[in-house]
Structure formats: C-alpha cells, structure tokens
Design a protein around this nucleic acid. Structure first.
Lengths: 116, 116
DNA sequence: CTAACATATGAACAGTCATTCATATGAATG
DNA sequence: CATTCATATGAATGACTGTTCATATGTTAG
C-alpha cells in the first residue's frame, strides 16, 4: 500500500489542515448535535426558554434524562440557564446554534428534494 | 414533578417542532461530523480530491480505518468517489459540507476570542 | 423546621461505534 | 494468468455514551 506518488498533494493539504486540537474541538461540537434528544431540546429552545420539566414533558422523557443532556449542552455553552424560584429556565446561548442547525437542515432538505 | 403550569408554552413549541423523523435525520447528519477522523478527512478534501492511501498517510492511520470512515461519509452522500485505474479518488460531494463545518468553526472561534 | 417541589448527580447497564486484524475484491502489469 | 498494488469488508474488541434508578441538593410554602 502507498506506493504511488502523491507527495505534492500531501504537502499542500498538510499546510491547510487546521491543528489537531482545533479539529478535535470541532468534532466535539458536532458530537453534541449528534443526538436526537439534544437536537430536540435545542430546537425547542428556538421557540422559547423552557424549564426542565416542561422539556421533559414535551419530549416524553424522564426529568433525569433531560437534566443530564442539559448539562452537556450547558458545558458546551450552547445553552444558558436562569433561576426563577424553584424552577430553572434554559435558553439558547447564542445564534450560532440556530445557524448550525439551520445549515444542517438545508443539507437534508436538498437531499430530500433531489431524490424526487 | 411537573406540577406547575406551562401548557401554553408546550402547545406553542409542539406546533413549531419538526417531525421526529426529520430531527432524527438531522442528528444523524451531525453524528457524522462528530468524529475527529471524519472531520479531518472532510477538511482534507476541502483542498483537493485524494485517494485512500494518501488520506491514510496524511492522518497517520490504517488504510482500513480510512476505508471504513469513507464508507460512512459516502453513505451519507457527503463525499463521492471516482476511479482511476487501481486508485480511487474521493471528493466532497457538495458545498453544504463546507458551510456546515465553517459554521462550526465560527462558533468555536467566537468561544476562543471571548475567553480572552 | 418540615414537607413538597424542581432540578442535579452518581453509579450501573445496555447499546453504539471506531479501530484492528485478517481476508476479499478488483484492476493493471509483465 | 499470476502477482502486485489499491481498496473494501466482516468479525471482534475496547471504549464511549444515553438512559434509568436511587438519591442528593436547593428552594419555597406553611
């Protein structure tokens, strides 16, 4: 294996390839979007901030499961939280989340329409 | 749990929430980006099409490992391939891939600059 | 201070997934 | 047509991850 020559291409690509750490952070970010529950939560928060138990009811899932996922989203700074008495409201932290998901959707939709 | 009232919000969000299947497809798409190896491959293909063994050498990984990942990327229509004799060249299938990754990077970079 | 509610968290389990190893396919060359 | 090179693939394995269960933390009301 690897007997024919492609050193020219390798050299060029190596120059442009971002650092390992950055690419690792990037895939970590996408990893977060790569779960249905988390996508649903994020999408729900598009519309309005929500407390944990409302999200749980919306998705038909345990409060615990939602809490665990919210923690992941919070650690990644994708959502923020705000306390109001006993309840804690979560919200999208910035608009990049919207753009990233919107872009993903655009890709999907193009796929769907191409199939027809 | 779930004793206080948030029916109004739930009703509103339920209307706007995309179908389960679509959200599932969306997270499946992001799942593909959520792996360092695949991110690296995609990023490498930004620059130029590449054959399997060149990618393997670039990333310092087994040809087999790369082949497996390329299959996943191909199944998701994120890359295409082209045969030229014994070697097979892979390339990005469309520009959405670029945009999605670029958007992810933008989010990361904003995070980095905010920290200073 | 105690009871009730809202959320968080740790441990455990089950399912998923990326890599490796061995091997198979497929193309070109002599 | 046998050998070599380029790639593909199936099975196995180890690591990771999402959910559940039990329980802890923190807040408000009485």
């Amino acid at each position: 294996m690897m007997e024919h020559d492609h050193n020219a291409i390798l050299k060029k690509v190596r120059q442009e390839l971002p650092a390992d750490e950055l690419l690792s952070d990037l895939s970590d970010l996408f990893k977060i979007f790569g779960d249905t529950t988390r996508c649903k939560i994020l999408y729900a928060l598009f519309e309005s901030e929500m407390c944990v138990c409302a999200i749980a009811e919306l998705l038909g899932m345990t409060q615990s499961a939602i809490s665990h996922q919210l923690r992941i989203l919070k650690d990644a700074d994708l959502v923020g939280k705000r306390r109001e008495g006993k309840t804690i409201y979560y919200f999208l932290s910035d608009d990049h989340v919207r753009t990233i998901i919107a872009q993903g959707f655009e890709h999907l939709i193009e796929d769907y329409t191409e199939r027809e």
